[in-house]
Design a protein around this nucleic acid. Structure first.
Lengths: 336, 336
DNA sequence: TTGTACGCGTTATCAT
DNA sequence: ATGATAACGCGTACAA
């Protein structure tokens, strides 16, 4: 371990409190002693003990981040944004994975809270339908921010992409490429995220005079057995002979592309494809994948910013939902 | 915050230490009082204050993980492995990014150490050539494990892929596909990782009677301006009219593929390609990318396992380097 | 079996 | 401007 305040105080024959004041740059301290302390501290590589300070002040300057999985391009990008803001503001992040399990998510939240994090930001698992645990924390004045996947079941500061307009744009793009039989593959989660992408799809059809057909839509179990679920859904959808598919999540997009390739479909000739995806490899996929790209880093940054403001007790107004615009990236998979 | 031991002790009219003993399941405690305490604790959602405990026992049950960037497929997979082992063993991980900067790496190490982590596992930045900082910590008895990118400049427990054999296999595969003018693109880092992949390449050529030609090899600055560096290197290499390229890192592999596509090369007809990569999307790339795949999760798991053993003071023998076998995944980009 | 007292390293509140 | 002291919540040696 490092040296402590007392080590310094003994070595310099001054009191612990004086040393503390010197190091915290207090105004009630003599310039001379201050320099003496600072010099000694630097020479002996003094680093304040975070544990002790945290215990004393009741804050840890750490933030809990709960996500479904770290091994996910899009999530990693958000984490990068979160990390940058937190580092800039002197906060440490503790990342925990729910692995799309509600139980594990609860465990994460409990552990984080017990660890004394100053606040929690969470992108709920697809399984999560009950937010009472989070609500309870929140009602005790504990700062909570929802990001990416948000829900209407909870009142809180929420940051996410504008899923409705993103889905609308993607569907409209397919329509303007001449497709009318457009299938839609989505998650079966009960999150706002899911619902809004579905809404965007329907709205685009409606606005362009295309009848919505239930048979052209499938909802996959994205929490478990995703491969099997996608295969089942695709088999179902393909019976309806769609001309194009709009997939609603990163994972679904690439899995569908892989499925189509495996089953010898030529994209976009046999069937066109556009999907939500943030993979940097979309451009080098086979064929290059047209995507709705979410502002992942900004979502992370803004969410972190918001949580830190909350922690610092700044008045940032009532809980509100901030939606960031997506970006339509047209490549080959969606036809000409 | 939660309730404390004292809250319980007051409510039950017993001393704090008795409560503490009840909750730590000490043997010197009456069954009756123990149940009483446990019941009360559960009812009031008592969670021990980690800060206070850490301060007391001098251990935090947390581990620092330093990596180049969280926004990297391969790294995320390793982190996933690390997280799993740590969660199983009741350790929290604190992830910090060096962003391939030596200064930032030092800052991470300092911050982690100051945070009181029980040990550090690190995959050094490409810039890192000086390990004295880590060595000093280590010499003070602080547990350190190197993983993924390892260096001979430091004695420590090290876990990585068998880069030499991986590179050898990839090069040999190209040779057996009939290519003799095989270029090699690598990082310019001074890590063992880099050197061994280069060695594997050279050894494969030698073993198959192909002369090594310096002009067919280029080292990119993978720490900064990687795009420009790759473009420069490719321009240089292509002048030598290689029949195939073997790239030595995840990032280089996909960047080279993108470069070749952009410059209208047909892969593998004009030029064949094989590279180190752990992207799950390699199979859906255009063309599907032949790869040397590293056992990312296992590297993470084993490294975490090792560090935890070190922390617990188990005798796991002298510092040694463990190399895990890579897997050759042959797809279309490397020819027939 | 239970209680008392102290200390971990820091900051805050009093005095001086 | 500086020092003494208490307190944060917990664990433990010692006493009872």
């Amino acid at each position: 371990m490092s040296i402590t305040l007392r080590d310094i105080s003994k070595a310099l024959n001054i009191s612990v409190s004086t040393v503390s004041r010197a190091l915290t740059d207090s105004h009630e301290i003599g310039e001379e002693t201050k320099q003496k302390v600072l010099a000694y501290a630097k020479e002996h590589h003094y680093v304040p003990n975070r544990m002790a300070r945290s215990l004393k002040v009741g804050k840890t300057r750490s933030i809990g981040v709960v996500i479904c999985s770290i091994d996910n391009n899009f999530v990693a990008q958000m984490l990068d944004g979160i990390d940058q803001i937190c580092t800039e503001n002197g906060y440490q992040i503790i990342i925990m994975q729910s692995k799309e399990s509600y139980e594990q998510e609860q465990a994460c939240i409990n552990l984080l809270h017990a660890s004394g994090v100053d606040g929690i930001m969470i992108s709920p698992s697809y399984q999560t339908t009950d937010f009472s645990h989070l609500k309870e924390l929140q009602s005790q004045g504990f700062p909570v921010v929802l990001f990416d996947r948000i829900s209407e079941k909870m009142t809180a500061h929420k940051i996410a992409a504008n899923n409705l307009s993103g889905a609308y744009q993607a569907t409209t793009h397919l329509i303007s490429n001449g497709y009318t039989r457009i299938a839609h593959l989505n998650s079966n989660a009960t999150l706002t995220t899911t619902a809004e992408r579905f809404e965007g799809y329907k709205k685009a059809l409606e606005d362009h005079g295309i009848n919505y057909q239930e048979e052209l839509v499938a909802f996959c179990d994205t929490a478990q057995q995703i491969d099997q679920s996608v295969a089942d859904a695709m088999e179902q959808l393909l019976k309806q002979q769609p001309q194009a598919i709009f997939t609603a999540t990163d994972l679904l997009s690439t899995k569908v592309l892989a499925y189509l390739m495996e089953h010898k479909f030529t994209v976009p000739k046999d069937i066109a494809l556009i999907g939500f995806s943030n993979s940097d490899l979309a451009a080098v996929l086979n064929p290059s994948l047209s995507t709705v790209r979410q502002p992942s880093r900004q979502i992370g940054e803004l969410a972190a910013q918001t949580l830190i403001s909350l922690i610092k007790g700044k008045d940032i107004g009532p809980e509100e939902t901030i939606l960031l615009d997506t970006e339509l990236q047209i490549r080959k998979s969606s036809g000409s």
